[in-house]
Structures are given as structure tokens and as C-alpha cells.
Design a binder for these strands. Structure first.
Lengths: 340, 340
DNA sequence: ACGCATCGTCGATACGCATCGATAAATCGA
DNA sequence: TCGATTTATCGATGCGTATCGACGATGCGT
């Protein structure tokens, strides 16, 4: 592997000149710049990351802490990961995977060894055990998810409260007077209390404003649980029933249960789920969805941390950013009686 | 951040001694070892990865090239990623994410900058455009997937041929005389020809041996396509129909189509799909599955590359490893008339 | 008691780059 | 035309670790 010294020799300049050509931190004459750039080309020189990190004290690597919980919707996690990796490249950074299995010590490790300059944590829980460590770390950390106490932390997430409001407002406008929320799996509810709570607070707020009733019923992937929830909802509903299934894993089961009860979404029942547009279109009856904007959340998370890395004026930051959600009508919900 | 020099000072030894305590490459007396280890503890010293990489010419990082194709089963990709990351930690390595978007230049970049010591490529296509680059790279690369020409490459994958054989043998033993394979999505077939071919070669081989007929029909997520395939299969079948859906994304659609045709898996039709055991059990009718062992493939891929990194006796390796698949009976297939 | 091998430790150096101070060359004003 | 600036480049140094050669101390056999 050629080094910057080799390049310097080939171009007939000093090694430091090569470095300045690359970084642009000092003026270089057009003539020598060209000589250097040609030499770089011919030698296919690429700077050594280790040496660069050692000298500059910057690795240009961001650690991404990923969850792997079977209860979660893995496809959506993957979308986060993918978008985060691609966005990082735009800012000329790379992504190092840190598994949740490593827990808090894992964070200390990658930061302590200076393998990366900062961290993005996915799937942050309301009372996440890693928060004390995060606060003690002297590098920028961005949390995807809002913990109960976000003080001293930099957080970003979809606006779940807005999502809840949108769903209920929408269904209320379509004429439903009782709206049932088939919630997340118990495991998720216990762990990630925060976004569940935010969603519910949104639905309840909208319910008050619109004068409709919202039922919160247990979700999950267990067909029996969903079936019980559906039956309870049907029993309590006057008029056309409406369901909100904010968890991607719940939808399939819900669809089947409704089917077995002889109910057709968009005809004699309304259903709003959460899924990507492409997935929503693939359903037998295209699903009206509440889009939680995973790609946008990912992009912003990367932007935030890269800005922090650039700024670097140390002081412990604190910020909280909520990404607006988007509701999209497809065929699984009733159309409002008149107007939008 | 404390350095090994600080540790040395605190322990009253030379920096090199600290290094030898850590690496164990020279004998150290029990006494000084303890002094050094205590100092490390008290300073919470962690070696600097950049300096280490620079001096040792090893980063202890493996690049993982991940695909992100909506047509693919993202949940299963995520399982690969997760298991690979965790296994790498066992070998004291970390995983750097490289997106498929970066293409071949991306591989050159991470290897050229010496950000990582080796690569794992997922979802390798039969005629992958990256193969020339891979061959030219002077670092170990492990491919998950078998390209058409695997010469000079290190490959590992599930044994799709075995999987095909197992499915057909199994269904033949259960008394089916015509077996329909609802294949992958056209996009996948075009791209990843190899494993599709291998699977089919397995089914055909078993068909010959067992004297049954195998139909290869188009798959995908398009309900109409699947419906057409099913109807064609039903028309061509005498006796109880049997379906094999080796692509995870096809199953849901297939299930619905069969349902709409009044067919119940395990009663008047047999279905073998590919899904994780947990997912298979969650189906309304527990799905008999062919397990393509993603976790085992991942583990072995990491082991292979770590072995190569350790060996390091340069010479271009070549190997091909196939992981045996496992077929599991659940309720979606007919039981064989007598005995297993 | 003496030389010799072994063990444990030290000091020096290299890894490849970024960066700082210094210097030579070019530019300008008067 | 000469000194004062500015511009472009060089040389030297440090980043933190791994590793090699050297060296003193210890134990051994005879």
C-alpha cells in the first residue's frame, strides 16, 4: 500500500504538502496540486484510516447500536440501519455496528477504544439502563426514541402523539364514534413504554376534541389475544367499528381476525395500520396507514450527530426533535360522509 | 484518555512492558503483571484502536456488505446482520457496515483505507459485478452465496440443492404425485440466479428419484401471479396438491390464495414454506418449513474469515461450504400414509 | 566459583498522517 | 530599489501502540 510519503516522492514534494492538498487546510499552488493529484491517481493512494485517526483524533466512524428483538418489526429496523448507513456516507462517515447484546459496557468499549467518534442508539427505552453511561460519555450520542427523562440528552423520534391524534381525528371525521386501538405486544409495552404512552396520549387528546370514544386493547401476535380484543371492541361499538393497529406485526393477525368475523375493511369496518407505502399497497385491501417516517428519522439522526461532531465545542448538548407523521388514505378506511 | 504510557508510569514500568502484559507475547513476572493490571484498572485504560491498527497493521474490524432490496425478506437479512455482529465479537472483532449502494468502489475504499481487515459479502449474485474487485483485493473476503464461477473465492451458503431435495422427497413420501414450486420474485430470480437454480436442481433430482412430477411456477408478492400459479398447479394435479414456497415473502400471499380456493393446508393441500421456527408456529396453521439456517451460515462465515485473518499466510484461498438445511413437519403438510 | 543459558524488563524505533513553526519565494507599496 | 507582507512549501514533531534488540539478573551445571 502506498503512503503519503510515496505520493510526495512521486510528486517531488514534501509529505506535508500532500497532506495539505488532501485537507485543503493551507493554500496550494495549482501547479503542485496537479502534480500531487496525478501522483495520487497513479499510485491509487488512499490514506490510512488508522494513522489518520491517530494524528487527527477523529475516526470518522459512528457507532450504531442496533436492537434485535424478535418481537420487533425487523424489516423496519433494517430500514433504519440502511438509511443511517447511507446517510452517514454522505457526511463522509462510516457506521460501526454495536449489538444491543453488548449493553452499556459495549458503549464504553467502542468509545473508550476510540473506534468511533459518536453513537446513535436505536430503540431507546423509557427508562433505558444505558442512559447513565450515555450521559457520562464524552462523545456525541443521538438517541432514537425519547426516554422518560431526556435531560442532557439529544433525542429524535417520530411524533407518536401526533400520529395518535391523526388516526383518531381521521376516523372520527369518517363518522366513527368508537375507535379501538389494538396496541403493541406486551413485551414492547413493558420495554418501550414511552412511545406507546405518547401514541395513546395523542389518541385520547383527539378523542376529547372530537367527542369520540377510544378503547385501548391488548395487541401482540397471539391470535387469541387479538381475537379477544376485536370481540371486545365489537361489543362496545355502536355503528361502524374502527381499528388502529400502530404496530406493524399486529396487522396481519388483525386482518385475519376481522376476516373470520365477516368484516371487510373499507366496507363495514375501518382499519389504519402502520406500514411502508409499498407494503401497504400490497395488501389484499390497500391499507390506510400512519407513516412513522423511519427514513426521515434516520436521516435526521445522522445529520444531528454529524453536526455535533463538526461543532465539537464540547459542552453537553440537549435537544429533542419530533418528526411529523403522515396519514395516508387507502381502501381500508371508510370515506368521510361529505368533504374531506 | 489515559495511554499505555500513563499506565506504565503508574505501574513504574516501561511502556513496552504494558504492551507485553496486554499481548502476552513475552513472559512477564507475576509481580509486574499485577502492578500493570492494577494500574490499568485504576486508570480505566483502554488501548487506542487507531494507534493499535497503525502499529500492528490490523484493525480487528470486518466489513459487512449488506443489501437493501425491498423485494428481499428484510427480517431475515436482519438476522444475518445481527448474528454476524455478535459472532464477530466472540472473535474480538467489530463489524463495519458497507452498503450495497457503494458498490465495488465501496469495497476498494474500506480495504484501501484499511478501515477493515476483511470483508463479508451478503446476497452474492450468480454473476456479481463485484467479483472482479473481490478477486483483486488483497484481503480475505467471504461470500454468502455461490456465484457461477467460484474459483479463487471463499463461499458459504445454505445447501439449496439439499433443501429442494428434502422438500420434494418429503412431499413424495406423503403421497403427493405432483408437486408445485412457487418460486421467487422475478427480480430475485434475475439477480440471484444461483440459489434459485440450485434449489430447482434439487427438486428435479428428487423428483426423478421419487418418480413424482415437479412444476416450477412463478412467485412474487403479486397476488394475481400467485393465483395464476396456483390455478395452473391445481389444473395439472391429480390427487392432493402440494406446494413449496421457498421464498419467505411468497408465503402470505400463497396462504390467502389457497384459502380463497377453499383449500386448507394439512387437510386437502400440503404446503412447505421457509420461515424461522417462531414465525412458522405463529401461522394460523403451523407451517411445515425448510430451514435455510441463516444463523448457522452467518456464524460460519464469521468463523471462516476470522480463521483466514489469523492464518494470514497470504496465498489466495478457495473454498466452498454448504450448510445442511433442515426440514420440519408442522401442520401444513399431509402426514405420510404409513411410517415416516 | 565461573561461564552460560534463560528470564524479565527496558529503550528505541517504526507505523502513516496532521499540524505547527520556519523559510524561501513572490508580491506590493513607496 | 528595498523592506514589509503575503503566499507556497518544507522539515520536524507528535499521536499511541507493537516490536525488536539489548541488557541486567537469575539460576544452572560442573
Amino acid at each position: 500500500m502506498p503512503t503519503s510519503k510515496d505520493v510526495a516522492q512521486a510528486a517531488g514534494v514534501a509529505q506535508s504538502t500532500v497532506s495539505y492538498v488532501l485537507s485543503g487546510k493551507r493554500p496550494i499552488s495549482e501547479k503542485t496540486r496537479k502534480k500531487v493529484e496525478d501522483a495520487i491517481q497513479q499510485l491509487t493512494y488512499q490514506p490510512n484510516a488508522g494513522a489518520r485517526a491517530l494524528a487527527s483524533r477523529k475516526t470518522r466512524v459512528i457507532g450504531l447500536v442496533i436492537p434485535f428483538i424478535p418481537e420487533l418489526h425487523m424489516a423496519s429496523i433494517m430500514e433504519f440501519v440502511s438509511v443511517i448507513a447511507n446517510t452517514a456516507r454522505i457526511y463522509d462517515h462510516d457506521i460501526l455496528l454495536v449489538t444491543e447484546d453488548e449493553g452499556a459496557p459495549g458503549l464504553k468499549r467502542v468509545v473508550g477504544q476510540q473506534i468511533c467518534d459518536g453513537l446513535i442508539l436505536m430503540q431507546v427505552e423509557g427508562d433505558d439502563e444505558r442512559l447513565p453511561v450515555v450521559r457520562s460519555l464524552n462523545v456525541p450520542v443521538v438517541l432514537i426514541g425519547i426516554p422518560h427523562d431526556p435531560s442532557g440528552l439529544v433525542c429524535i423520534d417520530a411524533d407518536f402523539e401526533m400520529a395518535g391524534e391523526q388516526c383518531v381525528q381521521d376516523l372520527a371525521a369518517a363518522g366513527h364514534s368508537v375507535i379501538s386501538v389494538i396496541g403493541w405486544q406486551p413485551e414492547v409495552v413493558e420495554r418501550h413504554v414511552n412511545y406507546v404512552e405518547r401514541f395513546m396520549s395523542g389518541t385520547d387528546k383527539a378523542a376529547q376534541d372530537s367527542g369520540v370514544r377510544v378503547l385501548h386493547l391488548p395487541g401482540g401476535t397471539d391470535r387469541d389475544v387479538i381475537a379477544a380484543s376485536v370481540d371486545k371492541a365489537l361489543a362496545e361499538t355502536t355503528g361502524v367499528p374502527a381499528f388502529i393497529a400502530p404496530d406493524g406485526t399486529v396487522q396481519d393477525v388483525l386482518r385475519r381476525v376481522l376476516n373470520s368475523r365477516g368484516l371487510t375493511p373499507g366496507v363495514d369496518v375501518s382499519v389504519i395500520g402502520s406500514a411502508s407505502p409499498t407494503l401497504a399497497e400490497l395488501q389484499p385491501i390497500p391499507l390506510s396507514t400512519i407513516d412513522l417516517r423511519p427514513a426521515e428519522v434516520s436521516r435526521r439522526a445522522v445529520k444531528i450527530i454529524c453536526d455535533l461532531l463538526e461543532a465539537e465545542n464540547q459542552g453537553p448538548r440537549e435537544s429533542l426533535e419530533l418528526v411529523p407523521t403522515v396519514i395516508t388514505h387507502r381502501s381500508s378506511t371508510l370515506r368521510p360522509p361529505h368533504g374531506s
